[in-house]
Design a protein around this nucleic acid. Sequence first.
DNA 1: TACCAGGAGAGCG
DNA 2: CGCTCTCATGGT
Length: 292
Amino acid sequence: MTPSRSPASNRISWPVEFYHLDATLDSGQVFRWQPSGNGWTGIVGRRWLQLRVEVNTLHAETVEPVADWNWLRNFLQLDVELMTVLNTFPTEAPMQAAIDACHGLRLLRQDPWECLASFILSSTKQIVQIRQIITLLCERCGEPVFTPPGFPAAYAFPTPDRLAQLSEADLRACKMGFRAPYLLQAARAVAEGRINLAQLRGLSVDDARIELLRLAGVGRKIADCVLLFAYGFPEAFPVDVWIMKGLKQLYFPNRRVKPRKLQEFAQTHFGPHSGYAQQYLFHYLRNHWKPS
DNA sequence: TACCAGGAGAGCG
DNA sequence: CGCTCTCATGGT
């Protein structure tokens, strides 16, 4: 275990292997990170920070000193041995191509509420637009956080309690359209304790999914995104339009495959870390593949 | 201009 | 069930 407790400092460095920060922060699992110099800036919880990787070292810098960095190690999932995960993937051509296209891509471990809210806002939106909506939402409704001199103002992701007090019109002003009532209902469900996001950690993936599916505006795809990106269920396999088209063409050319069958195939074919494989496939399809 | 976006839900037959 | 339509908004 790398020492995470040390004299409080606003900087820390960790040794890393195969950590492709660019691919990771720009792969559609998080929406608030921005390129900055040779690294990235973003918010985790209530803290602004800057990240960069040089060779086999990951550097992090916050505004205020930090005594315990475990929150960041957890967000970055530094204890995951990537090669062990990749070695469980099937050794067929498309999967290997996906690995080669973005070797070092990682799954992060996000805050459940931020992840849930973000993906409620993601439906039928391009990633650039999802970023826009979330940026607006945070600027208007989130608590300001400290940033270093010379950097623009930044905001924490708004809490369920804060959003629960707003009106649908307030949210529509953030350009989220028909997703506004969904986000508002989800915020109120969490704020009023009708769903307990922390409690989902102790459930099986199937039971946790059932809980998430109770929320309006949350279907199988969005639920699986939250199960994978926030709770770390390794078998959660979100099937979006890219994955749908890609799997059909790569694995079932010239055949009719029902969505149910495709989900079943994905879960078995890609092994125990099918969710990780999904992220590699998604990144590969989105950046190196044209649907036909 | 037309089309589509890391979907979901309601209304059909 | 399984299909189609709608929802709001902006990028390409």
